[in-house]
Each structure stands twice: as C-alpha cells, then as structure tokens.
Simulated assay, not measured.
Amino acid sequence: MFLRNRLVLAACLLALSFGLEASPAQTYDFGQPAPAAKASRSVEVVMGDMSFDPKAIDIKAGETIRFVLVNKGQLLHEFNLGDAAMHAAHQQEMLKMQQSGMLTPTAMKEMDHGAMAGMEHGMKHDDPNSVLVPPGKTAELTWTFTKATSLEFACNIPGHYQAGMVGKLTVSQ
C-alpha cells in the first residue's frame, strides 16, 4: 500500500512537471503576432505537398504582414516562422506529437487527458509564430517584424522540412 501511494504521487508530480515545461511564455526577438487589421500588406503563400510558393519573401523591419496560407496539397502542412535552430527544436516536438498519434498525415487530433495516459500531457500546437493548415483549407498568420534578420518559413511536420518545404524570409532595414 505504501509503495503504491508513493508511485501514484511520483506519477502526479511527473505529470505536473510536463505541463509546466510545455507552457513557458515564449518571446521572439524578431517580432510578435499582430491582429490582421494592423497588416500593412498581405502575402499569399501556397502550400503544395513538399513545397511553398513563393520560396522567398522580402520584408522591411517594422512591417506587419498578413500571411494568407493556402494548402493545395493532400497533406496537413505547417507555416512556422523562425531560424534554423528554432525549426530543428520544433521538429522534435512535432515528432513527439506524431508518435503519440496526435498528429496524422492529414490532421491534428484533439486528445483528452484520459487518452494521453503515459504521454506528455502538455503537447499542444499553439505557438503564435506557427499555424497548421489542413489539405484544401486556408489559414492566416499576421506578424510584425521588429528588426532586420534572416529567417525561414517552414513546415516542421516530420520529414517535410527535409523534403524541401522551407523558404527564405529576409527582413531588411
């Protein structure tokens, strides 16, 4: 009985620790999300299966861009703003989501906590610099770019970045 209580306590503490790690307040040195009404212009990005069109986007520092994301492919795709290191880290998160069954080739499943027994409880796709777009759907992401830098926009669903689903985003003065 004593051992079982200790195991239950350990499991609860472990579950709480996953929830705390998964929800830090994230900031981005290259900008922040913005309401669509603040956009100075719109840029349409067409997602095919393993491609973006255009492959490169030029922006001025201080500009607020409304990205209109059109998925013309047969698979679920992501539009994520960041540098190569951010994409590499996010790819590992997406791989965990895929391995848990939360991420499928065509959708992101909502999972209840009961179904997630033994998995990381904090798994969500809610980063402000990222949006998932199901096949045949359109989504938007509006972002204010605060400084000159070189970034990438990418799909971090396992294998997509490696297959070439990445583009250059240049923010100039």
Rank of each mutant, 00 (worst) to 15 (best):
K96F: 08
N5V: 05
I59S: 09
M111T: 04
L20E: 02
D127E: 14
T64R: 06
A154M: 02
F67N: 10
S51T: 13
T138I: 07
Y28H: 12
K55P: 09
L7F: 05
G159L: 08
S42K: 10
Q173G: 13
T27E: 05
K72E: 12
T142R: 03
A117N: 05
K60V: 08
F153K: 06
E93W: 12
N129K: 04
G101P: 10
A36Y: 11
M123W: 09
K124A: 11
M47W: 07
S150T: 15
A15Y: 01
Q98V: 01
T149S: 10
A15E: 05
L14Y: 08
K72I: 05
V46L: 08
T64K: 07
H90Y: 15
A22R: 13
K55V: 09
A85K: 14
H90T: 14
K109S: 00
D58T: 15
N71Y: 02
K147F: 04
D29E: 06
M111L: 14
Q162D: 15
Y161G: 00
Q173P: 13
K137A: 09
G62R: 06
F18A: 05
G73R: 10
F145C: 09
D127I: 01
Q74G: 11
D112P: 03
Q92A: 12
L3Q: 12
E110P: 00
F79W: 04
P158H: 11
K55Q: 15
D126M: 12
M1H: 13
D29S: 12
L76V: 01
H125C: 15
G48K: 03
M123K: 01
G167L: 02
T142S: 13
N5H: 13
W143G: 10
N129Y: 04
M119H: 10
T104A: 11
A115T: 03
N156M: 09
C12Y: 01
H87I: 09
D29H: 07
V70G: 00
G167S: 03
M94D: 04
T64Q: 04
P158G: 09
P128R: 11
E44H: 00
L20I: 00
C12F: 07
E21W: 10
V131R: 02
V45R: 06
K55Y: 03
H87R: 08
R6T: 07
Y161I: 00
Q26H: 13
F67V: 05
K168A: 12
N71E: 07
M111V: 08
F52M: 11
L132D: 01
K96P: 00
C155A: 04
E21F: 12
N129H: 08
